[in-house]
Deep mutational scan, measured.
Amino acid sequence: MEVRTIKVFTTVDNINLHTQVVDMSMTYGQQFGPTYLDGADVTKIKPHNSHEGKTFYVLPNDDTLRVEAFEYYHTTDPSFLGRYMSALNHTKKWKYPQVNGLTSIKWADNNCYLATALLTLQQIELKFNPPALQDAYYRARAGEAANFCALILAYCNKTVGELGDVRETMSYLFQHANLDSCKRVLNVVCKTCGQQQTTLKGVEAVMYMGTLSYEQFKKGVQIPCTCGKQATKYLVQQESPFVMMSAPPAQYELKHGTFTCASEYTGNYQCGHYKHITSKETLYCIDGALLTKSSEYKGPITDVFYKENSYTTTIK
């Protein structure tokens, strides 16, 4: 009895394709271990004539594949690729409408935090270190965002349907971005203890939790000093293409032309909904596939993004 075979390709990165001759009487799992086709788990399936010449994702289970996976995804987590594939199996079914010149995501599976993050990423200057993220990001900007969303979920250790947080998501993504040249110098002034300067680099240099107003941050924000008295913390120097200011959701007025974009969060910790506000020729609110415009805006804002380049204080 002759062994019926077909020729397929296996890959971990969709760049390096490895030619395989597979036995049609055995499952993919018996031949390769966990195997995925377009995100779908085909591990328990036997090869079919229609699979001839198709590319299958496999887990990096030998040295060659491990090197290829690390170079593309910059992670050695053995569960990463499987999590990416199972997320992709959902995100490829989502709709990605162009809204006001940006790629958004039609609401499904509690994905409003991903839509808000995706919209924000198209408006701030950011370059990702893992080629996987950078490639998928370019495709997302062009309207094909399924891979990018699935990668975000995998890097953030999230599953489809789980509630997510924009600030946490951005923080994970910033860790995989090139923020080497970003720098922030802060000064804390206390009447009792004097003053202390701190220099922050990388992710810490672009994120701040405690106030939404970048102007206020430049002037000074009140913080408790270690001595128990009130101290003032203010920005001395900022070198970065953008800054992200966050605070627990509270009524906040966004003035046209003073910011790049913002995240609105309605609801409580267990259950809520994100919308995205962007400042173009007027203010726009993007909620999944829905767009509304207004000249002014007041609502429960939790993150505001500002364009920056270089700032030095005039406070002496």
Rank of each mutant, 00 (worst) to 15 (best):
H74C: 08
L119D: 04
S86N: 11
C112F: 03
A117Y: 03
Q30L: 14
Y214Q: 00
G82C: 14
P60W: 09
K93G: 10
T211W: 02
T226A: 13
N61P: 10
A247G: 06
W107K: 03
C190L: 01
L153M: 10
D303N: 00
P248R: 13
E296S: 13
A146V: 05
G164M: 02
Y138E: 12
V236E: 06
V8M: 13
T292Y: 14
N129C: 09
G82H: 15
E168Y: 07
K219Q: 14
K307I: 11
K191I: 09
A132D: 02
H273I: 01
D135R: 11
T211F: 07
S310T: 08
C227Q: 01
R66K: 15
F56Y: 09
K95N: 14
F56A: 07
M170Q: 01
E162S: 10
N16T: 09
M85I: 10
S263N: 14
L153W: 04
K316Q: 11
L186F: 14
S246G: 02
V304I: 15
S279V: 05
Y84I: 03
I223P: 01
V8C: 13
Q196E: 14
K316W: 12
K183C: 09
L151W: 03
L254Y: 00
F259C: 00
P97G: 05
F9N: 14
S25V: 07
T64Q: 15
G299R: 05
R167A: 06
I301W: 00
V22K: 07
Y284M: 10
Y269C: 09
K218Y: 04
D77R: 05
L133E: 02
G164L: 00
V304F: 00
Y72T: 09
T27F: 09
H51K: 05
D287Y: 00
F242L: 01
K307M: 13
Y57L: 12
V185Y: 04
C225F: 00
E281I: 04
K191Y: 10
S104N: 03
Q222H: 15
F56C: 08
A132Y: 03
S25G: 08
C112T: 02
G194R: 05
T120A: 07
L151C: 03
L102S: 04
M244H: 02
A69I: 10
A150S: 05
I152L: 12
Q222G: 09
P47F: 05
K191L: 09
L17Y: 09
W94C: 02
K229S: 14
E68F: 06
M24N: 15
C182T: 05
P60D: 10
A150L: 03
D62W: 08
Q98G: 07
K255S: 08
P131G: 06
P249W: 01
N110Q: 03
E2G: 10
F242R: 01
I15V: 06
D165S: 15
H74W: 07
T11W: 06
K191P: 12
C112M: 04
T116C: 13
A250R: 10
V42M: 11
G228A: 02
T199E: 11
L119R: 02
V3G: 14
V166N: 01
T5S: 09
E281S: 06
S246P: 02
V99Y: 10
N16G: 09
T64M: 13
A247H: 06
Q195G: 10
H256D: 06
V189W: 10
I223K: 06
L88Y: 15
T169D: 02
Y274D: 00
L118E: 02
K229D: 11
A150E: 04
T198N: 11
A262Q: 00
M26C: 15
P241A: 09
H256Y: 13
Y214E: 03
L59P: 07
S50L: 11
Y208H: 07
A115G: 05
L151P: 02
A40I: 10
Y137H: 09
V21G: 10
S104E: 04
G143E: 03
T314W: 10
C156H: 04
V12Q: 11
P131R: 08
Y311H: 09
S50D: 11
K218A: 06
C182A: 09
A117P: 01
V160K: 03
K307V: 07
E68Y: 08
C271Q: 14
W107D: 02
Y72V: 09
Q216M: 10
Y284N: 07
F32C: 10
K233W: 11
A40P: 09
T103D: 03
N157L: 03
D165G: 05
M207F: 07
